[in-house]
Amino acid sequence: MNKNKIRHEIVSSNPDIEVRFYLSEDSGSYVAPHWHNSLELVYMMEGSMITQFENNVRQTLRPGEFSVVNPRVIHSVTSQKNKALVLLIPGALLEKYIPAHDFLEFHVDMHPENLVEVTRLERVKKIFTDMYIVYDVRPDAYLLKFNSLLYDLLYTLVHSYSIRFTDKAVH
């Protein structure tokens, strides 16, 4: 990646919630190398996309899979026609509830072999889709349910899908 063409993306939250959350319907696009202070999760419902990271690692996302892009990680995205749920959790929210979040890196294995891990992954996917249903339908007190699902998702990510670094200089 050409370091001169990398941009910092400012992520603004939805007006009623502390995160950016939306259904993306993409007919095919390219997002140039960028970074942001938010934790980014994309859950692919239809179609596919490829995320390219600065270390030349490429991740292909297919239906039923989700990706996690850690805060401050440079990445670009090439999308085929797709429909995906996108969640960006600002660094300030992470700091509020996970004070040591700067020492965590999140990784999710989309194809676990262990039955316990498969079950855990399916639960995370259900939380993600339930967030969308609640936010789309907006029943009475939807903010309570949405936030409870968001916090459940974050709790699961921290406890099941994070690696803690004891020294920031390690990575």
Rank of each mutant, 00 (worst) to 15 (best):
V124N: 00
F53E: 01
N14Y: 08
I6F: 02
R123P: 01
S160E: 06
L104K: 03
L88P: 00
V77M: 03
F53D: 01
D130L: 11
H36K: 04
S48D: 11
T78N: 09
N70G: 04
E113C: 08
M45H: 04
L154W: 01
L41S: 02
S79Y: 01
H101F: 15
E18V: 13
A141H: 13
R120W: 05
N70S: 10
A169I: 13
E46N: 15
V77P: 00
K168Y: 13
K145R: 13
M110I: 02
A169H: 13
A141S: 14
R138N: 06
V69K: 00
Y142D: 01
H159V: 04
Y43H: 12
S48H: 10
F103C: 08
N82C: 15
H8K: 14
D109W: 10
V86R: 03
G64H: 03
V116P: 03
N147M: 08
V86S: 07
T60V: 14
P33C: 01
P99L: 05
H75G: 00
I98N: 02
F128C: 08
I10F: 07
E113K: 15
Y151Q: 10
D26L: 01
M45Y: 04
K83M: 03
N55D: 15
Y22K: 08
G91Y: 03
P112L: 05
S29V: 06
P139E: 10
L115I: 15
I127Y: 06
D102N: 11
P33H: 03
A32F: 12
M44T: 05
D109M: 12
D140V: 12
K83C: 02
R20Y: 10
E40V: 10
T156N: 10
V108S: 05
N55G: 06
N82S: 14
K168L: 15
E54Q: 14
T119E: 13
S76M: 02
P15V: 03
P99D: 02
W35F: 15
E54R: 11
S162M: 01
T166E: 15
E46L: 06
Y22I: 12
L85N: 03
K96W: 05
T119H: 14
V68F: 03
S79M: 07
K168Q: 10
F146W: 06
L143A: 07
S27V: 08
E46W: 07
S12L: 12
I50C: 11
Y151A: 05
N70E: 12
E40L: 13
N4D: 13
V170C: 08
F103M: 09
L93I: 10
E65N: 05
F165W: 04
S13T: 11
I50F: 01
P33R: 00
K96R: 11
P112D: 02
G64C: 10
V69L: 02
L39S: 00
V118C: 06
H171T: 15
Y161C: 05
Y43E: 04
N82V: 03
V124Y: 00
S13P: 08
V69W: 01
P90T: 09
R72M: 14
V170W: 09
L61T: 14
D109K: 12
V73T: 07
R164C: 12
E65W: 04
N2Y: 04
P33Q: 03
H75R: 02
M1A: 08
V19D: 00
W35S: 10
